[in-house]
Structures are given as C-alpha cells and as structure tokens.
Write a protein that binds this DNA or RNA. Sequence first.
DNA 1: ATTACTGCAAAAGATTTGCACTAGG
DNA 2: CCTAGTGCAAATCTTTTGCAGTAAT
Lengths: 152, 152
Amino acid sequence: MITRTDIFVQTLRQAGLRLTPQRLAICRLLATTARHPTAQMIYDALRPEYPSLSLATVYNTLDVLVQLNMIHALGSAGDDAEHYDGNTDPHINLACISCHRVIDLEAPRVQTLEEEVAANSGYHLLGARVMYYGLCPECQQRVPQTTEPATP
Amino acid sequence: MITRTDIFVQTLRQAGLRLTPQRLAICRLLATTARHPTAQMIYDALRPEYPSLSLATVYNTLDVLVQLNMIHALGSAGDDAEHYDGNTDPHINLACISCHRVIDLEAPRVQTLEEEVAANSGYHLLGARVMYYGLCPECQQRVPQTTEPATP
DNA sequence: ATTACTGCAAAAGATTTGCACTAGG
DNA sequence: CCTAGTGCAAATCTTTTGCAGTAAT
C-alpha cells in the first residue's frame, strides 16, 4: 500500500532532491497530520526526535514542498504565522481566529470551482487557498460577543 | 448616490470611531481601487497627499477595517506581505506569484459556497479568502518554464 | 474638554541569509 | 568524491507597541 508519505518521498526523488532524515520527518508529519501546522509547530513537534533540527531547515523544506506543490501555504489563522496544509486536494479550510486552529471541510463544489478557474482565467495555476475565518463552536461559547466588551 | 466610500464612513461612525482624514483617505483608496494593496502600497500611495502619514496608522486603520468586516485580509501574493481587499462580496482572487498582482474573478458559485459553509460548519464566519495562485498570462510569457532553468 | 487617534521610534516576530561543516548519492 | 543540505547566528522585513502630542467629537 502506497502511503501519502511515500508519495512525498517519491516526488522529492523525482525532483532530484536528497532525502535527508529531516526532510523525511517533516514530510511524514505533514502527510500524516490533519493539523495545519506552522513552521514553529513542526519544529517543536520534531525537536524531541531530532534535537539538532534547525528552524531554518524546517523553513527550507517547507519552501521546497510548496514549490513541488506537495503542500499548500494557507496564510495566517489570526496568529501572524504561515500555516501549511499537507492535503492539496481541493477542499475548504476553516480557521478559528480565536484558537488559531484550522480544519478541513470537504466540498465537492470546490473541485469544480478550481477547474473553472483553471479553464477560464488564462492563469497557470500553482496553488489554492480557500479559507474561511470565524469562531469555532467552542470559541463562540468562550467569547460570546466579539464586537461588544464583556458585560460590566 | 451612495458610494462605497460612503458606506465605509457610515460604518466607522456607527461603530463610534472617529473619522480622521487619514482614515478617510485609506477608506477612499480601498473603496475605489480594483487593486489589492499592501500596507506599504497604501502608505506610498497616500504619502504625496498626506506627507505626515505614518505606516503605523495605515496598519492601525487596516486592522480596524478588517475588524469591522469592511475589508478582507488576503494573505501574501508571494511577496510576504498582507494584501487587502476592499471588496467583501464573495468572489475569487487570483494572485500572480511572479508580479504579485491580485485580480478579482466573479464566480456566482462562491456565493453559494460561502452560504453552505456558514450553514453547515457551526462556525460564526467573519471573513473569507478564496485565493488561487499561479502565473498570470503576461508572466507566463516572461518566464516560460518554472521548473527548469533557462537553456544554457 | 475628553480621550481616541496619530506619528515617531523602538521592539517584536516571523522568515531569510551567509557560511562553514556534514552527509546523501 | 562532490555538492546539496544542515545548523547556527546574524540580518531582514513586516507588523506591533509605547508614549507624548494632536485633533475629532
């Protein structure tokens, strides 16, 4: 059975890039997680296993993977840091601007949308970022009003 | 006739915020332009008219406008700077990662998509970012191959 | 008159870069 | 071997912050 990690590895090889343990670890993390980590999160997550890992290497690898279109850069989730998505299939991302978590949302409609854009725009598409911002159900309970201050 | 600028002004007033010349100028720019400027671009554009304008004020105002949902923050267009969109109607943004320009693309489909997300996600939606990345027709001619280096 | 807003300069953070060393192929 | 990739530290660049002065209401 071919895992998503295998595809990452294969793509790196095909591009003539070296498969270092650091790259493998980062690929495995991104291929496996449903999270949408930032560079720092990846660094923190792998540090225990690779104590010598450098944040610069994480950024390097993320750039490489974005170039190869293996992952997408989603932009900030209200925390001023780039979040990365290991899932490049057309789908929706939902970011909570309070807890800064990002979740995926399947939507067949998006698939069609992407094809439509590719067909009609004249652009050579290289990536997508379909992201909605808001408050997740939990954070809505925690912070009931956004525009008004708490009742005095 | 009520202009888009008027709506900006009205919304600021309703929120109990002061209508300073700086804010007015920034609102007018965002309400008028089809561009998707960064803070720096706005600063540069208004500097001739408001020589005392501060970049900090631009950032301040942009934050205010995003909070009031008058504009959307689109994230980077390959230039590591936040681009702002004065048009909050559901639509698609197309960014060229070579010339860093962002254009709008109407797509009735997106309207439906947003409603669908709002209805099914349980999230309290506050903003959207439907962005596709690629090479615009002009930049495709300028840089025909992205993956291969120029012929030696 | 109040106090929100501005402008400046300094600070904070995220990301990038230069360079010597290491290791994948 | 050979050079791509790593790790470190310093640099860069965008965005934020603290604060005193200014001006909108």
